[in-house]
Design a protein around this nucleic acid. Structure first.
Length: 354
DNA sequence: AATACGGGGTC
DNA sequence: GACCCAGTATT
């Protein structure tokens, strides 16, 4: 296999030069911008991430500006992109770069790896793309390309698979052009070696592809498990008292950490009646008398391992809630959209409150 | 070694 | 409905 590597590398680069998409982060070597694009594109399609990249690059010109921003401002800009820990980790990483490296991203894989939110993939990507260092990337695209190229059935989501494919990626790396090689592998996975209906006829390395030769492309890559999702029932309370409502910042471990939503009652597995949740919330927040104005339609919100069935219950209060005691934010309805919101809340806001 | 963590697109 | 996406941190 080894002796074919040079030919594969060449075909790959030739194909990449002719077929690469024009992306803003391909017009720069600025490690800050490469970092920005790489974090944004984690588990995110290019089309979805692109507008966010442009927003961030325009708002924060360099890592110092990013570090000096408010985290709430960053989260608001990140709203809708998902995996919000990325935004919080970026803020921390920006501080690390400023404090440890005087505002310059280190041209060193091990140092990059120490930054919050930067794992093996991103460290390799920054090292190779921004600094031309010989570190192969292994993302979802590369896993797929390599598993087919070698007809290797090691599950790509296993610890063993990770080791195997990282090694394969590194051994195939073009040390003369690490940046272009890495991007070519990913671009090939995205445009040609697609999960379903790959365009093997257009593949520049199909003559080397074992799975293609054996006509077993659809058997690769192998994944070991499927994640199942649980159903969550959520009743959100949109209170109204003298023109304002109440929201809260999500803390702790769960989803949407750092984002804002309404006080709510949550049930896992079995459905809860509005009457039950109304009683509960009245007790929890010491609300006393209130009038239920409207119960919304069901909002179905799909996350990776959760199906959320939500209803929004609008109520008029007779007295205010103790915001300090219950860590609530008193806010006018028109101002809600200034806070960072989960998509579910944003969709309700757009439909019912805007 | 598994699991949690979003949202949107495709088939 | 199942799978996937320029993955990482935590358990």
């Amino acid at each position: 296999m080894k002796k074919f590597h040079t030919i594969i590398q060449k075909q790959l680069l030739r194909w990449y030069d002719a077929n690469k998409r024009d992306m803003p982060w391909r017009q720069t070597n600025d490690a800050y911008k490469i970092w920005l694009s790489e974090i944004i594109l984690q588990q995110t399609r290019v089309e979805q991430g692109l507008p966010y990249y442009n927003k961030f690059v325009n708002k924060y010109k360099n890592v110092k500006a990013f570090a000096n921003a408010n985290e709430s401002e960053i989260l608001k800009l990140w709203q809708g992109l998902g995996y919000y820990s990325r935004a919080r980790n970026m803020h921390a990483a920006a501080h690390q770069v400023v404090e440890w490296h005087n505002g310059i991203f280190p041209a060193n894989y091990d140092e990059l790896l120490k930054l919050k939110g930067v794992g093996e993939y991103t460290a390799s990507a920054i090292a190779s793309i921004a600094y031309g260092l010989p570190h192969a990337v292994c993302d979802g695209n590369v896993f797929r390309v390599l598993s087919r190229l070698n007809a290797n059935d090691t599950p790509i989501n296993s610890t063993e698979g990770k080791k195997v494919f990282f090694h394969l990626a590194q051994s195939l790396l073009n040390h003369q052009f690490p940046s272009q090689h890495n991007q070519a592998m990913m671009e090939l996975g995205a445009l040609v070696c697609k999960p379903t209906n790959p365009l093997c006829g257009q593949c520049p390395i199909n003559t080397f592809c074992v799975a293609h030769q054996k006509n077993t492309i659809d058997k690769f890559p192998v994944k070991s498990k499927k994640q199942k999702s649980t159903v969550i029932y959520l009743h959100y309370f949109v209170f109204e008292y003298k023109g304002h409502t109440y929201m809260q910042t999500r803390k702790g471990k769960g989803i949407w950490q750092g984002l804002h939503d309404f006080p709510h009652v949550e049930y896992t597995g079995k459905e809860i009646s509005p009457e039950q949740s109304i009683q509960r919330i009245q007790h929890t927040l010491a609300i006393g008398k209130m009038d239920v104005i409207k119960i919304s339609q069901e909002y179905k919100h799909i996350l990776t391992h959760r199906i959320i069935i939500a209803k929004f219950i609008q109520c008029t209060l007779h007295k205010p809630i103790d915001t300090k005691k219950y860590s609530l934010i008193k806010i006018k309805k028109a101002e809600i959209n200034k806070l960072s919101l989960p998509r579910l809340i944003e969709k309700y806001y757009i439909k019912e409150l805007q």
